[in-house]
Write a protein that binds this DNA or RNA. Structure first.
Lengths: 299, 299
DNA sequence: CCGAAAATCGTTCAATTCGATCTTTTCGCC
DNA sequence: GGCGAAAAGATCGAATTGAACGATTTTCGG
């Protein structure tokens, strides 16, 4: 059921499209975590491998998804075109079938899709469609709630899989949604993204007062603080509090990142920040620049 | 599948993800300590196996923990006194340590604790303590948010474990929090409870308009509809909508169950319902009374 | 207590992997 | 462009692991 198969160097070589000797070397020098049998055979966990691929820790390799599929115990879909995935996701969210939503995202994840891809190309468009259907009266608000909660549960499962298992200290990222904003999906995606990129993440979640966030920022010595704004209860007050936060962050040497659909052009004009953007891909790039460079970073 | 301390080579092979022949060879050459029955069958102690795994003497990058759990559940620390569990949970929620919260609840679950016990005797008291600490200014609101989100994530994982895997049709229970109520923890516990008791559950979640719930109730032919009320934005309006819901439910032969701390005595006096209560244990009993009836519901 | 079904044993043999060595490719540098 | 070092690919005998099969032991009802 759980697909944490152990692979041999030959199988991994096939997936990564490199020679088996190369895989053996990467295992021996610690690039790929693996264990050994008493007889000396290397065993590599598929989950570990895909995690490395997502983190881009492997020097410029392309993953052969069809091979991954073969080794992940009879998984079908992996390399489906995006629009098929999208319509599948929309159907699963509309039907009362939480498991299907969960499986769909899990398989994308285990096939090596990055969080920013899942967010920008899969979840974002689907949520937009559902939102339109709701506004135009084609869908009930309950149906929209329900689908969203399925998505939410699936993402929380992914988060559990992204949590670091080692005790290696990581730079701290701290984030939340502003007060009055109860929409947690986008914020959760940001959390997943940062986890994937090797941060230690503290996500306070929806409806967090700015003062409380500022206090936490100081106590945790966060390198990065983000705010996901899907809805602004009181734009003017938000602008004030956010600018105070920016001031304090600058003093502490912390970067303040902003995102979310509620930050319209008018609001942005009055805001101070260190970075602002729309897509998760942009966010990912900006956040990566804050990380101490470790290992190979080609391209 | 009894829970034993002693495993056969096949079971060990399953855990280590190697062939059973290999396990037999490792036992024979002394790599894995084992005893033998008079007839010559090898018996391997789980404790020995896990010790070797920890010492990196066996392939173990990611031991298939779900398999280990199946053989080891109920072995270690199962019956701790409740107040110890409570203080452990409070500590884990106060520290930034989501995994500890998760593990704690998971172990309670796997040790056979029911959802109503976990809710009434563990989570409810701890949340109350944290709430008091927050009101009295001892804790930051962010810390309270954070701990709650850890709890929420752990409960969602439990829900995934409770989801029915068979296709057997079950009676439908439908529920939500009223409009303006964004507190989802209690509602989630109700969902878990009903899943545990064999219902098919549709939980629309926080902030659901009563009209939308009524519509869904009709479409899904729910036998049970519940509302978890932690906060009432507009008590008078809620009373009106809830009573309309009760009327429609009665017409459809659906039972309307109410619960939550926001339903004070004054509010209750004006409400119509088929059941109301405070604890999950009471809820569980009331819901169980609806279960054996199947098919005796003429339109 | 008995008999049948399931699980395990011990053995043999094929398939895979190891480790070491060597050749080829890639990349930075002058 | 040439050159040296580092990384990647190729090869091969020895060792390890996986698979198959009849014989034996254990389990489970009646």
């Amino acid at each position: 059921m759980p697909l944490t198969h152990h692979l041999s160097p030959v199988q991994v070589a096939e997936i990564l499209r490199v020679h088996q000797s190369t895989v053996k070397r990467w295992v021996d020098d610690g690039t790929i975590p693996a264990s050994k049998t008493p007889g000396g055979h290397r065993k590599i966990a598929l989950a570990d491998l895909l995690r490395l691929v997502r983190e881009r820790k492997l020097p410029s390799v392309s993953v052969d998804l069809s091979v991954v599929e073969r080794y992940s115990s009879g998984l079908d879909l992996a390399a489906q075109p995006l629009d098929t995935l999208r319509s599948n996701l929309r159907d699963a969210m509309s039907a009362n079938y939480p498991t299907r939503v969960h499986q769909l995202l899990l398989r994308c994840f285990q096939a090596g899709m990055t969080i920013e891809q899942m967010g920008d190309d899969l979840i974002q468009p689907v949520m937009e469609e559902i939102g339109k259907a709701w506004v135009s009266g084609q869908t009930d608000v309950a149906q929209e709630h329900l689908g969203t909660s399925y998505l939410h549960a699936a993402l929380i499962d992914l988060r559990n899989r992204l949590l670091p298992i080692d005790g290696i200290p990581r730079p701290v990222a701290l984030g939340a949604c502003p007060e009055g904003d109860f929409y947690s999906l986008g914020n959760l995606l940001v959390e997943l993204l940062l986890l994937q990129n090797g941060w230690q993440v503290i996500n306070i979640g929806p409806n967090t007062p700015a003062a409380s966030l500022a206090h936490m920022m100081e106590r945790q010595q966060a390198k990065l603080v983000w705010l996901t704004c899907s809805y602004l209860q009181d734009p003017e007050r938000f602008v004030n509090e956010c600018n105070q936060l920016h001031h304090k962050a600058t003093e502490l040497g912390t970067q303040l990142f902003l995102g979310g659909q509620a930050l319209t052009t008018e609001v942005r004009r009055k805001l101070h920040y260190h970075w602002i953007g729309e897509s998760l891909s942009q966010f990912s790039l900006a956040a990566k620049r804050l990380l101490p460079l470790s290992g190979a970073n080609p391209q």
